[in-house]
Design a protein around this nucleic acid. Structure first.
Length: 423
RNA sequence: GGAGGCGUCGCCUAGUCCGGUCUAUGGCGCCCGCCUGCUAAGCGGGUUUGGGGCUACAACCCCAUCGAGGGUUCAAAUCCCUCCGCCUCCGCCA
């Protein structure tokens, strides 16, 4: 939810933000009208309610005759109060609903436009030249099979398409990556968390995943519970309805959880392998801080993501995602995309978003300082999404015989193993 | 899954049976002031959150807020219903 005061005082800023995302600005006028209607309704209700209260206070000490008269008056008044209260409630609901549908205002620096209008910020490392090395790289599917690391056939047999088993060194690789990510995070002062991956509607809604993204969310039948697509969801809701002392900020969490995505509408895309799956595990950084600090924190999250990719010796680029592709909550988003040799392109491995106060307003997360309370700012960033990280490692560090060199930083987490050998 | 108990403004707590100055009690903590070589003690005052009005987004005034949402009533912390959470016991279970 955006700041209602910005909407009221600077509607043009909101209109411009809508345009930057390629969305209609009609919603701004509807929101303004709803705000006026809401305040009128509040005034009407409070006047009635005040009258009811003052009359009601007279009743206990009134004489019998006066009492009859008062009761008659308050009786009709009670009905009016009820009516005014209902009208106020309806007006407030209408207003919140419209307000909630407005996406966060993209940062000034965010490139305008849609999915393809991203700006490349930098390239790190050089994609490996397999032609120069004189062999054709195998894709991660083949490598996974050779190494006994990924079992796609049985994944499909047991769970369906876009499922897999990680076996042998594949399973070891996941645990190693998780531990390496957690160690890095702990070293940087993060609190490690294992988060629940089933959440109530409030958490899902509050993080902005029940709007246009609802199609991608799994719901448990008859349970009013959702499977999260990222631990951003439980971690944002973690401090919901709380007031955090600003002296305790930033609060940094590194959360491990499985992630579930329906991948509705992506039929035909990445149908093979484990690039796009219905379930994967992830270590996610999540930070609560102040609005002013959020911008610098966003850069820090990006730096920690890069540090992790650097340790895995991957070639990647960092993009500044365009406004239309930000999702509901973010004002700015950086994606780190690793080079996938057999695809000949960069694919998203990690992503970090600054959601400013947007999620905090919805989830009622405030901070307290000298001047009073205000909404906190939330940010998130991937440390490692296991499946795509494995794809990048296998393909990037493969050797002609189908074995895979283990990046040095990862070796301690694999018991010193320096090469994954075919089984 | 079954049975029972509980949820009050940071923490603890009175009030709930028997609805009405509850405009929510008291203590602790915290903040301001007085007193004071310093500190402590003592004394006085303040201390939920959200919204609205008016405005300098101050002060002030108003409305809501006793886990959440409904209901009964002229009137609900108090009575009724539903939900959520916590605790105890039984059953089951990794």
């Amino acid at each position: 939810m955006i700041d209602p005061r910005i909407l009221r005082d600077e509607p043009d800023r909101v209109r411009a933000a809508q345009a930057k995302r390629g969305l209609s600005a009609d919603v701004v006028d509807r929101a303004l009208a709803a705000d006026t209607a809401r305040r009128t309704a509040i005034l009407a209700f409070e006047a009635k309610r005040g009258e009811q209260k003052s009359l009601g206070a007279l009743i206990p000490k009134a004489s019998p005759e006066e009492k009859q008269d008062l009761l008659a008056r308050t009786k009709t008044l009670a009905a009016e109060v009820k009516e005014a209260e209902a009208a106020r409630g309806a007006a407030e609901d209408e207003w919140t609903e419209i307000l909630k549908s407005i996406p966060n205002l993209a940062d000034e620096a965010t490139p305008p436009g849609g999915e393809d209008d991203f700006v490349v910020l930098e390239h790190v490392g050089t994609p490996r030249d397999f032609a120069a090395e004189g062999f054709e790289p195998r894709d991660h599917i083949e490598l996974g099979q050779i190494l006994g690391a990924i079992d796609l056939e049985r994944g499909a047999k047991v769970s369906g398409s876009r499922f897999y088993f990680l076996t042998g060194v594949g399973a070891q690789l996941e645990l190693a990556l998780v531990n390496m990510a957690m160690d890095q995070a702990r070293g940087a002062g993060f609190t490690q968390v294992i988060a629940p991956s089933l959440v109530r509607p409030r958490a899902m809604e509050g993080t902005g995943f029940l709007g246009q993204a609802a199609d991608d969310v799994y719901r448990i039948e008859g349970e009013d519970l959702y499977l999260v697509g990222t631990s951003e969801v439980p971690m944002a809701a973690y401090h919901s309805d709380e007031i955090l002392d600003e002296a305790t900020l930033p609060k940094r969490y590194a959360a491990f959880s499985p992630c579930f995505r329906k991948e509705a509408g992506s039929h035909g895309k990445d149908t093979k392998g484990i690039i796009r799956v219905h379930w994967f595990d992830k270590v996610e950084m999540f930070v609560y801080t102040t609005l002013e600090e959020s911008y610098a924190e966003h850069e820090r999250l990006l730096a920690w993501e890069k540090e992790f990719l650097d340790k895995l010796e991957l070639a990647y680029r960092v993009i500044d995602v365009a406004a239309g592709d930000l999702g509901l909550s973010a004002i700015r988003k950086f994606d780190c995309e690793a080079w996938i040799p057999t695809q000949g392109k960069y694919r998203e491995l990690t992503s970090t978003s600054n959601c400013t106060e947007f999620q905090a307003r919805r989830l009622d997360i405030r901070s307290r300082a000298e001047g009073g309370t205000r909404p906190a700012a939330t940010l998130n960033g991937t440390l490692t999404a296991i499946t795509r990280t494995i794809v990048a490692i296998l393909e990037t560090h493969q050797l002609p015989d189908g074995s895979v060199r283990v990046p040095e930083a990862l070796r301690p987490y694999l018991g010193g193993l320096d090469v994954l050998e075919p089984v």
